[in-house]
Amino acid sequence: MVELNRMPEPMRSHLVKLPCPSFNSQPWVPGKPLASRRISLISTAGLQRRGDRPFEGMTGDYRVISGEIKARDLVMTHISTNFDRTGFQQDWNIVFPLDRLRELEVEGIIGSVAVYHYSFMGATDPAEMESAARNLAALLKGDGVDGALLVPV
């Protein structure tokens, strides 16, 4: 579905033009087996707690989402109109698979679920996200996270 060459215009050109950097280095951090890792979800769906500030523009900021959050309290304020939201309306796990992650924790497939999860707004120029992302790494370490699952929208 989302192979660019199979996508109709004008969406194809829109996606081709999104800022997309390439890097000279390929960082790689080894780690423990999955069954002992602590996992945090990092979404770019423009998710926020109900009552938190809506996303307003491409500024690279993020929102904090407690692992205790309930589906009714998680909302989406991504500025783009060019992706489906009806899936999220029916089932939040389609973009924020916290229920599935909890199941894997109970079954011992992952070590644990982090206390905090985060959401950026995708389609933002990655350069705008860099300093926030580097600060976020310290917060993840503070939470004991050694596996971040990044989920686009």
């Binding site: 890097f23 990655p126 860099e130 992302a133 580097r134 790494a137 993840l140 050694d146 699952l149």
Partner: peptide
């Protein structure tokens, strides 16, 4: 890019990709 920045800071990452 987010994964790249986080991994550079020592956090192991994995991700879903929608646009190959």
């Amino acid at each position: 890019a987010l994964a790249h920045y986080l991994e550079s800071e020592g956090i192991p990452t994995t991700q879903i990709s929608l646009i190959r």
